[in-house]
């Protein structure tokens, strides 16, 4: 009997996908590094996250611990500002096959009810449409969220909330610094809403050229660090 060469390539694709599904995260990465075909294979399989643990370590930032199976390996992400691991985490969670099942939203709802969530000063979410939970995001001082469809009602709601809220202590360090900044994005455009000292302003910008488009109207004196 002739030997099947190469053996791996003769395995049925659904078996390979089933196999990838059973691998721990590091093994997935190693398999995807074997070749382009294997990277495509791994990318075609959803990542299953068993649990997510958020841990406050210091005032600077917090750590996320993600476990891919019960009692399995735990990945730690140090989520300080501009930390490289934030982009690694973003890449992981924005995997094109990653999805949140409907019942998981119950968990999200519970998270939104926690004190930590209510006291959050800054929420930046990428590639996650939050239309259904839109209102739960409006309490923070700096917000970046994506919505599937930006409606007039939504916009009015944002403006109403921003108008009603008192600016957070210490937010007005300079005259030209926005007090509250909110960013709503869709696929190509984003709406930047800023509460200034005496006014609220909304600017439509191209998503890719947010800073350029915004600064066209405001010059370089404006600090966009808040958003």
């Amino acid at each position: 009997m002739t030997k099947l060469i190469p053996i791996w390539e003769n395995l049925p694709i659904h078996f390979k996908q089933n196999l990838v599904d059973k691998l721990d995260f590091r093994s997935r990465l190693n398999l995807s590094a074997c070749s382009t075909s294997e990277r495509d294979l791994v990318d075609s399989c959803p990542i299953s996250i068993h649990s997510l643990y958020i841990e406050q370590h210091d005032e600077e930032g917090f750590h996320l611990k993600i476990s891919f199976s019960k009692n399995g390996m735990v990945l730690k992400f140090n989520c300080n500002n501009r930390d490289r691991s934030v982009s690694a985490l973003h890449r992981l969670l924005s995997h094109r096959k990653t999805k949140i099942e409907e019942e998981k939203w119950e968990v999200v709802k519970k998270i939104m009810e926690t004190e930590q969530w209510k006291r959050a000063g800054k929420i930046h979410l990428y590639d996650c449409k939050v239309d259904a939970y839109f209102k739960n995001f409006l309490h923070v001082d700096s917000l970046k969220i994506c919505v599937e469809k930006l409606t007039e009602a939504m916009l009015l709601e944002v403006i109403e909330v921003i108008t009603a809220r008192d600016p957070p202590p210490g937010s007005q360090k300079e005259y030209q610094t926005p007090k509250i900044a909110t960013l709503l994005t869709n696929e190509s455009r984003c709406l930047l809403i800023i509460k200034w000292k005496k006014a609220i302003e909304a600017t439509v910008c191209r998503r890719e050229f947010l800073n350029e488009d915004f600064l066209k109207n405001h010059g370089n004196c404006v600090t966009l660090d808040m958003i």
């Binding site: 190469p6 053996i7 093994s27 398999l31 074997c34 070749s35």
Partner: peptide, 15 residues
């Protein structure tokens, strides 16, 4: 296992 080891174990061809 490293990617190299995986290639050997599974018989995965390189690009």
């Amino acid at each position: 296992k490293t990617p190299e080891e995986l290639r050997i174990i599974y018989g995965i061809p390189t690009d």
